[in-house]
């Protein structure tokens, strides 16, 4: 009988110069995609984008001049001083409310929660940090993966709609929506970064999947009505709306799209909302680095 046991072999090959956060990034993306609910949410988001483009397509089939009709109808319905009801950067800002917000919260919860609670259960930190990786590189890889996923479900469908809109629209339409790709990318990037860092910071503090989710839900949902109440109480001081993260995202996106001047006094100051987002990023980073410096993520 010929028998050859699997044998251990020394590694003679070259060690790569690849930055250490890269494998963390790719692995996190792979794991995220492995989650059933993440795939479902992503599919939902892509499907709604597709749905909107299909709708535009059929509009062209039925009423080829629907863009002009929209403006005319808008002029009839809307009060005099209102602008034309045409598709421009405002429309994309509006898409945010019905298209991005309902997806952002569940995605952060499912994606973040599944990763984090699995890591805690699998005690993965011990595997990671006994190797040649620094905490900063780990956070970087992790955060970029989160951001990548959130951009995938928010920005990508938006850009898809935008591209279809521009391609089918008249030439002069491009000028109306030219600010969208860059502005939307910037806004969504900062938003995703803030959420990604926040959920990691909350985990670093609570060290529990349940508490992370509860805290995140409370911050997301509870702050909205509080902002509203304070707005009314303070004699309509709209800056109190900045308490609500969703509101901040909205105003910040408007700023990035260059339409913040049109926001009325029902919206917080754009600088303030940007400040809130950057404050979240800053504080979360601070918490994360402090926790990792104490090495307490390892448990």
């Amino acid at each position: 009988m010929a028998f050859r046991a699997a044998e251990y072999e020394a590694f003679e090959g070259e060690r790569s110069r690849m930055p250490v956060w890269w494998p963390v990034l790719t692995s996190t993306l792979r794991r995220g995609w492995g989650s059933k609910w993440v795939r479902r949410i992503t599919f939902l988001s892509m499907a709604s984008a597709l749905g909107i483009t299909v709708m535009i397509y059929f509009l062209y089939q039925v009423v080829p001049n629907w863009r002009e009709m929209l403006v005319e109808m808008g002029n009839m319905v809307l009060p005099e001083n209102q602008e034309d009801a045409r598709i421009d950067a405002h429309t994309y800002l509006g898409l945010l409310r019905f298209f991005v917000f309902p997806i952002l919260l569940p995605l952060s919860l499912v994606f973040g929660y599944d990763l984090i609670s699995a890591d805690l259960r699998a005690n993965a930190f011990e595997s990671y940090f006994s190797r040649s990786i620094t905490p900063a590189a780990y956070i970087l890889g992790r955060t970029l993966a989160y951001v990548g996923f959130m951009l995938l479900v928010t920005l990508m469908p938006m850009l898809w709609i935008w591209a279809y809109d521009v391609l089918t629209g008249p030439d002069e339409h491009f000028a109306e929506v030219a600010s969208v790709p860059l502005g939307m990318t910037a806004a969504m990037f900062i938003t995703s970064l803030a959420l990604a860092l926040m959920i990691q910071a909350v985990t670093a503090i609570t060290k529990s999947g349940i508490w992370t989710n509860l805290t995140f839900v409370a911050i997301f949902i509870f702050t909205a009505p509080v902002g509203g109440i304070l707005f009314e109480l303070s004699g309509e001081n709209a800056n109190f709306f900045a308490l609500s993260i969703l509101h901040c995202i909205h105003v910040f996106t408007a700023t990035c799209l260059g339409v913040s001047d049109d926001l009325d006094d029902q919206y917080a100051d754009p600088n303030l909302t940007a400040g809130v987002l950057f404050l979240i990023i800053f504080l979360s980073l601070l918490v994360l680095l402090q926790r990792l410096r104490k090495r307490s993520l390892v448990g």
Partner: peptide, 8 residues
Amino acid sequence: RDSWVPGV
């Protein structure tokens, strides 16, 4: 303690 990369 057990320790592994979860989900893959």
